[in-house]
């Protein structure tokens, strides 16, 4: 048997052990990036084979924590793809402003950069006061970073550039305080954000939303899990309200494609259709 088949088998065993012991089912994750992370952890742990991780995972919750931490590492930016935020300032905000209260869900918010970007944007558009942003992730390590809202000072140049390109109305430095080598995002923004653990792999809808933002999360899932998540979004969204996906993500060929219309293609903004 070639070594490759062995590796595939080993990874399946590991994922099954994780699901059995901790109830996280990573079997619906796209394999290639997951495998890279697992192999990396095998190396760091001084192990030779993926199967050697299994006893550690089963009997040592701290080791599983490490695994979760590995899984939490994705990279984003404040106002990533500025043109998307620019579009939100226009059409989307105009529609949102017609509601007396606004609920927004950042599903898979990771380390929170885009959540704070949204809060800043809403503040500038005069909508933040009537908005509640739910920022959720299954990973407590990511959530802890998101809640703190402290980012490396070295990123501020890029974030500022993005902010300006997104149509920012004041100076980006109004929204953070620099301390040593880090920048702490304005505390007052947090009053409108609820950070919570929510697992797209198994948890249900928790509120009715006017806007759902889920960018660069679906690329990590297989088709089945993508459809599960998109169905949750469909249930959660109020009619004529918006879903925003990542730059390379689309509803084409998904199970909810017929229930949404494309509002702006480049920005990947979808709108839930009225049910006739």
């Amino acid at each position: 048997m070639i070594q490759q088949d062995t590796l595939k088998f080993e990874i399946e065993q590991l994922l099954e052990a994780i699901d059995f012991r901790y109830g996280y089912d990573f079997r619906h994750y796209a394999r290639a990036s997951l495998e890279r992370r697992i192999k990396h952890r095998v190396g760091l742990s001084g192990l030779k084979h993926v199967t050697e991780m299994i006893p550690k995972i089963l009997h040592d919750p701290n080791y599983f924590d490490l695994f979760l931490k590995d899984m939490s590492i994705t990279v984003t930016e404040m106002f990533r793809d500025p043109y998307v935020f620019k579009k939100i300032r226009g059409d989307v905000c105009t529609h949102l402003s017609t509601y007396p209260r606004i609920n927004i869900w950042h599903a898979g918010c990771a380390t929170g950069e885009e959540v704070y970007s949204m809060a800043i944007l809403l503040k500038e558009e005069g909508l933040l006061e009537k908005t509640r942003i739910y920022a959720t992730d299954y990973n407590d390590y990511s959530l802890a970073i998101a809640k703190k809202g402290i980012y490396g000072a070295e990123h501020m140049k890029l974030f500022t550039k993005n902010y300006i390109a997104s149509g920012g109305k004041t100076s980006f430095s109004d929204y953070y305080v620099s301390k040593y080598n880090s920048a702490k995002i304005d505390e007052s923004l947090k009053q409108h954000i609820t950070f919570a653990n929510h697992n797209l792999m198994k948890d249900q809808v928790f509120a009715e939303m006017h806007l759902i933002v889920c960018r660069n999360v679906l690329i990590y899932f297989d088709k089945e899990l993508q459809n599960r998540v998109l169905d949750l979004f469909k249930q959660s969204l109020i009619h004529r309200c918006y879903l925003i996906l990542g730059d390379k993500e689309t509803l084409d060929f998904s199970c909810v494609n017929d229930e949404f219309e494309l509002s702006s293609k480049k920005e990947r903004i979808y709108r839930k259709k009225n049910v006739l």
Partner: peptide, 20 residues
């Protein structure tokens, strides 16, 4: 594409990530 890692899945489709 710019800004994403490009991966090849075992079933010979493309995978994308925003890993570090």
């Amino acid at each position: 594409p710019a800004g994403y890692h490009l991966l090849v899945e075992r079933d010979r489709t493309f995978g994308f990530s925003v890993d570090p």
